[in-house]
């Protein structure tokens, strides 16, 4: 029978004390969620893996500086989020097409008006789920990194605004503003997929910026 697993803080303490296993346990415990954040923030699996590895190695080396004022998982996520944001900003410099940070155009009464309604929303097929996922991910890609990260944390991963602010090292008001701007930017791209929206068949989801074939790797 296995003994009870030590908690996160204990693992960090053991790691700092030289226990070669402790950090691996810690990572094994949290890496799935860290990966989701990294991949969704960066979209490119290679970039996400690089960012996650950099972040974990950094955490490994910086563990002495963990003061215990935040949960270990928050500390780890913060390092990962910052590594991802750094990379995402570089990505968005390389590409040049993301939406403006402060779009001020009056909204057109969205694209959904131009899109014929589907016959029925009652049953969603697997193909449709997959198309919806692709549409969401592609639309997120078009956002500036800060907005994207805020939405990934709050809307996708379910963190509270306060938690997201801790992870992104910014005030809660900034997180709210980024979420709000992000959703406003997503609406023309994803409105048809939102509950109550209308969309065409799965063979032709909304055209979205970025490479349409990019997918989240499962």
């Amino acid at each position: 029978m296995r003994g009870e697993q030590p908690d996160d803080r204990t693992l960090v303490q053991r790691h700092v004390a030289g226990d070669a296993e402790a950090f691996g346990w810690l990572v094994a415990r949290h890496r799935d969620r860290l990966w989701a954040v990294a991949l969704r923030t960066l979209h490119d699996p290679d970039e996400a893996a690089d960012a996650l590895q950099d972040a974990l190695v950094s955490a490994f080396r910086r563990a002495e500086s963990y003061r215990g004022d935040a949960a270990v998982t928050t500390w780890l996520h913060r390092i990962v989020v910052n590594a991802c944001l750094d990379r995402a900003r570089r990505q968005s410099v390389r590409r040049t097409e993301p939406l403006a940070d402060e779009p001020d155009q009056a909204h057109e009464h969205t694209r959904r008006a131009q899109i014929p309604a589907t016959t029925s929303d009652a049953v969603e097929t697997l193909a449709e789920q997959s198309a919806r996922r692709d549409a969401v991910l592609a639309a997120l890609r078009a956002l500036p990194p800060e907005q994207r990260t805020a939405l990934v944390l709050v809307d996708m991963e379910g963190y509270s605004v306060q938690e997201a602010a801790d992870l992104m090292d910014c005030p809660t008001g900034t997180v709210k503003s980024r979420c709000s701007r992000g959703r406003a930017n997503l609406l023309p791209l994803l409105g048809a997929w939102a509950p109550g929206g209308h969309r065409v068949g799965v063979t032709e989801p909304l055209s979205t910026p970025g490479r349409p074939t990019d997918k989240e790797v499962t």
Partner: peptide, 17 residues
């Protein structure tokens, strides 16, 4: 529609490592 976006985003399954 905006109000539905968080649910739409949350509906995307988490990627597996």
């Amino acid at each position: 529609l905006l109000a539905g976006l968080p649910a739409l985003l949350a509906s995307v399954p988490a990627p597996e490592l």
